[in-house]
Design a protein around this nucleic acid. Structure first.
Length: 486
RNA sequence: GCUCCGGUAGUAUAGUCCGGUCAAGUAUACUGGCCUCUCGAGCCAGUGACGCGGGUUCAAAUCCCGCCCGGAGCACCA
């Protein structure tokens, strides 16, 4: 592919760092989708561009609100590998709780954080008026004691939270006195009940970004306030904040990319699983034959602007088609087959169906049709719409006249004579195996495919003549296809 | 409501920082034609955009002001 022009802009202040270090930090509460892959691919591109380090970090610190899924960790790794992303370091936040505890204690000792036992509603009220809550100005010793109480279990869930001190009159109330640690005793899929105090996103993220030496943070615009919040921590600890780039949200027309909604749809039985072709997960795109190069290309095309972008399926499919067209083998597929007998065939004809019209060297599939073998399968929709007496051509064979809906006769051999009449695909009767194809909307269609396809490797992408591109899987000797696009 | 961020054709993007070479380029979509024994690919042509209104300037997509529209955030989620 000669798509060199969509180069990403250089990273800000890249020269200041001896080694560029970036990270992709998904929450393993579901499979990653197109939107997540943007962060992953952008980071990967920059890591490669600067010969830097790509870090994969699982952010799984919310047992109750965003319960991690055990399967998701490995599925995310698989999706990343499939996307062509390599990472040099990997971390799981739920294995780093002691580190966060350590820094929590330190920040309390610095008198930049405190344990607040106020009721949330009451705290909120005070905060809006920029009034410190009663806990805020208690001595450090008291807060250390309370902190121990959170860890030990003396303080129950919801009764206390660690907050980071900010300006009480910060213009944006959302950044004031942000919470950093809370009690969540729900068992964690990886850690069980070992921990009951969990860091909140901004705390764990800030500590890790520093400890892991991240030089450039690429994050969505929805994190802009979190960036401001996290800068407080850096300031208190005397650390230097990395370069940050906020990019806009990415949508794809007609497909929702919300993990919670997708999960809900699966639970309700609307979708088969997270690889359902109706979803925008990487697993779904992969299953239906979208190539990793296609995804990377469209992500790079969209770039890293702060404005939001809506990708159209047409554009994505066009990219995919362009990559697939020269390499996908062609086969005959007959949806809804109907057998017709062709009378008065004067002699034996040999049909050659090319495996690829632009690559004659790939060879042909050959069939003989003659007076003794005059029954073929065609798509019922291709001939039912023809009026009696009309002519059509069996692709690469000869022309046929429809006498009636049950009678067909040989008409002529020459293609030129019928240039403007329909050319349809066909298979000799008895050739071909059954196949189901799952369409974009989840529906299933059935038909017959040329059984020469069995000699191919699976899973694989093919194009069916006059039908479209399909990714085929062999499941227990049975062929299952997923429709890609025209 | 408050805080922040955006706004180039249907979609995406180039150009915006450092005004002129942008009467705006590219991809895709769309329309027409060519080619092709696939409703695929390829080739050629065409339609189509600087949100609005002021201002600065010889000159504004680019700078300034106001407005409009869109989005995000305002969780003991990430």
């Amino acid at each position: 592919m000669k798509e060199e022009k969509h180069l990403l802009p250089p990273l800000p202040n890249a020269h200041k760092y001896s080694k560029i270090r970036v990270r992709f930090a998904p929450n393993p509460d579901f499979a990653i989708h197109l939107g997540n892959s943007r962060a992953a691919i952008l980071n990967d591109e920059y890591a490669k561009m600067y010969n830097g380090i790509f870090i994969l970090r699982f952010e799984d610190t919310s047992p109750s609100v965003k319960p991690p899924m055990l399967e998701a960790y490995e599925s995310i790794r698989e999706d990343l590998k499939w996307l062509g992303i390599n990472w040099q370091e990997e971390y799981i936040q739920s294995q780093r709780l002691e580190i966060y505890y350590d820094y929590a204690k330190r920040i309390i000792e610095l008198d930049k954080a405190y344990i607040c036992t106020c009721k949330p509603e009451r705290f909120r009220k005070l905060l809006i008026s920029s009034i410190p809550c009663p806990c805020r100005d208690l001595p450090v010793e008291e807060h250390l004691k309370r902190w121990e109480g959170m860890l030990s279990g003396a303080i129950k869930r919801g009764e206390a939270v660690m907050r980071i001190k900010t300006e009480l009159n910060h213009p944006n109330p959302a950044v004031r006195e942000w919470p950093a640690m809370r009690i969540d005793p729900k068992p964690h899929p990886l850690q069980g009940i070992k921990y009951r105090v969990w860091p909140l996103y901004n705390f764990a993220c800030a500590i890790d970004d520093h400890l892991m030496g991240i030089t450039h943070i690429l994050r969505g615009k929805e994190h802009e306030i979190n960036t401001i919040r996290q800068m407080y921590l850096y300031k208190y600890f005397g650390w230097e904040y990395p370069e940050v780039i906020h990019y806009g949200r990415l949508k794809i027309e007609g497909t929702m990319l919300s993990k919670s909604k997708m999960r809900q749809g699966i639970e309700e039985g609307k979708f088969m699983d997270w690889s359902d072709p109706r979803l925008g997960t990487i697993a779904a795109l992969r299953k239906r034959g979208i190539l990793p190069e296609t995804i990377r290309q469209i992500i790079l095309e969209v770039g890293i602007k702060p404005s939001e972008a809506t990708i159209s399926w047409k554009n994505l499919e066009a990219i995919n088609r362009k990559i697939l067209d020269p390499i996908a083998k062609r086969f005959i597929f007959i949806q809804d087959p109907i057998a017709i007998e062709i009378k008065y065939i004067p002699k034996e004809f040999q049909a050659k169906i090319p495996l690829h019209p632009d690559h004659p060297e790939w060879g042909n599939i050959e069939y003989k049709i003659g007076p003794g073998s005059n029954i073929v399968l065609v798509q019922s929709k291709d001939i039912s719409c023809l009026s009696e007496g009309s002519i059509f051509r069996l692709m690469n064979l000869f022309n046929v006249k429809k006498i009636s809906s049950s009678e067909y006769s040989f008409f002529s051999e020459d293609i030129l004579a019928i240039k403007k009449f329909p050319i349809i695909q066909w298979l000799p009767y008895g050739v071909g195996i059954e196949i189901s194809i799952i369409m974009r909307d989840g529906s299933k269609i059935k038909g017959i495919v040329d059984d020469h396809i069995l000699k191919e490797d699976f899973p694989n992408n093919f194009q069916f003549y006059r039908f479209g591109f399909v990714r085929l899987y062999k499941v227990n000797e049975e062929l299952i296809g997923y429709y890609s696009h025209d």
